[in-house]
């Protein structure tokens, strides 16, 4: 069993705990970022075990790593950033209308207004 993989799994689960167990919506967004980061780290780390050099050609005798995970994760990271930005904007809006970052209080407030 590889220790680093276990650590990534723990990182993921801590992030998931942040989403499920915390009431503060900003912490929930942090949690979302953490699980996204864990997935990215996992993909990159495991993909990098297939070689020793960066996937940039030009020299002889290179033993490059698999570049596919890196290209895919580039996409995943950008998408993660976008989702975070949007979530934060929604969080700000919810704070303005309810005066709280607590998900239950927000729900109460919003529910009463409708």
């Amino acid at each position: 069993m590889k220790l680093e993989l276990l650590l990534i799994l723990i990182l993921f689960l801590v992030g998931f705990w942040g989403i499920v167990g915390k009431n503060n919506i900003i912490k929930k967004i942090f949690g979302l970022n953490m699980i996204n980061a864990a997935a990215v780290i996992l993909f990159i780390l495991e993909g990098s075990r297939s070689g020793a050099d960066a996937p940039i050609l030009g020299k002889e005798g290179l033993h490059i790593v698999d570049p596919v995970p890196q290209a895919l994760m580039l996409t995943a990271i950008v998408i993660g950033v976008c989702i975070t930005a949007l979530a934060l904007a929604l969080a700000v809006h919810l704070y303005r209308v309810s005066g709280s970052f607590d998900i239950d209080r927000i729900r109460d407030k919003v529910h009463n207004e409708n």
């Binding site: 929604l90 809006h93 919810l94 309810s98 919003v110 207004e113 409708n114």
Partner: peptide, 10 residues
Amino acid sequence: KKPGASLAAF
């Protein structure tokens, strides 16, 4: 523009 819609979207 309903606050509830923001919560739903979130």
